[in-house]
C-alpha cells in the first residue's frame, strides 16, 4: 500500500513560484489499477514522481507499506525503487547498448542475482509480454510498441509491489497503445498494483480507479465499473 499525506510540491520562489501539488491525501491499496488523469499541468506526473520516490516533496509524506520515506536517504530510496517498484516511462527508456534480455535482466543483476538466473527470469518476463523471440535484438531493432512492451517486461521482471507508468501510450499508435493497456490489464488481473498517468480517458476507464486532477489538486477519485 502507498499513501500520500499532505503532499505538496512547489517549484521556484517568490512571485515565480509554481505550486504543482496542493496538499494531497491519497491512499492506494494493493492490487489496485489506478489511472491518474487530467489536463496538461494538472500535476499528474509530479504526483507520480513523488509516489515513486524519484523526487522529494516540498512538504508532506509518502508512506510505503507503513514506512515514512521522508526520513530515508537517497541510497535507501534507490533500494526501495530497485526492490519494490517498477517503472514504465513514456519514451521506453531502454539502454541502446544492451540487448532486450539484458535490458530486462539489469535490475535483477543489481539486486545481486547471477547473470544466468537474471536472464532466465528476464526471459519469463519477456514471454509474458509476448516478446521472448526478440531477446537478442537491440532496442533499435524493435518497433515502438515492442520497445514499450520490453520496458513493461523490465518493470515487472523482479516482481515489484507497485508498477508506475508515466504516459506509457503517449508515443504509440492506437493499436500498440491498446496492446499495452491490455498487458497492464492482464498484469492487474494477476494481482499487480499499477499506478498509471494518462491523457486518454478511454484507457483510464479500463482501470479499476480513476483519480482526476486539476491545478495540483484531486478533483475526483472514483472506482470504475470494471473494478467490480
Amino acid at each position: 500500500m502507498i499513501q500520500a499525506k499532505g503532499l505538496e510540491k512547489k517549484y521556484g520562489q517568490g512571485e515565480l513560484q509554481v505550486v504543482a501539488l496542493k496538499s494531497l491525501n491519497i491512499e492506494i491499496k494493493d492490487r489496485e489499477f489506478v489511472a491518474v488523469v487530467g489536463p496538461s499541468g494538472a500535476g499528474k506526473s509530479t504526483l507520480l514522481y513523488q509516489l515513486s520516490l524519484l523526487d522529494r516533496p516540498t512538504a508532506g509524506e509518502v508512506i510505503v507499506n507503513g514506512h515514512n520515506t521522508s526520513e530515508l536517504n537517497e541510497a535507501e530510496k534507490t533500494q526501495i525503487r530497485l526492490r519494490d517498484f517498477g517503472y514504465v516511462f513514456q519514451d521506453y527508456a531502454l539502454l541502446p547498448e544492451l540487448s532486450t534480455i539484458d535490458n530486462v535482466a539489469l535490475p535483477m543483476l543489481m539486486q545481486g542475482m547471477g547473470l544466468g538466473s537474471a536472464r532466465r527470469q528476464a526471459l519469463q518476463s519477456l514471454a509474458r509480454v509476448g516478446l521472448e523471440g526478440k531477446k537478442n535484438n537491440r532496442p533499435s531493432q524493435l518497433s515502438g510498441g515492442q520497445q514499450q512492451r520490453v520496458s513493461i517486461a523490465r518493470a515487472i521482471a523482479h516482481n515489484p509491489r507497485i508498477l508506475f507508468a508515466d504516459e506509457p501510450t503517449a508515443n504509440l499508435d492506437s493499436q500498440n497503445a491498446r496492446h499495452v493497456i491490455e498487458t497492464f490489464a492482464e498484469l492487474h488481473r494477476s494481482g499487480q498494483t499499477i499506478i498509471m498517468v494518462t491523457h486518454e480517458q478511454e484507457y483510464a476507464e479500463q482501470t479499476s480507479r480513476i483519480i482526476a486532477m486539476k491545478d495540483g489538486a484531486v478533483v475526483s477519485d472514483s472506482y470504475t465499473p470494471s473494478s467490480n
Binding site: 524519484l54 541510497a75 534507490t78 533500494q79 525503487r81 530497485l82 526492490r83 517498484f85 517498477g86 517503472y87 516511462f89 527508456a93 539502454l95 541502446p96 539489469l106 535490475p107 543489481m110 539486486q111 523490465r154 518493470a155
Partner: peptide, 16 residues
Amino acid sequence: RKFIGIMKGIGISPQA
C-alpha cells in the same frame, strides 16, 4: 545523461 538518470530511477546504484 538521460539514460544515467533512468538507470538510477530503476534502482541501479550510482557506484555501479
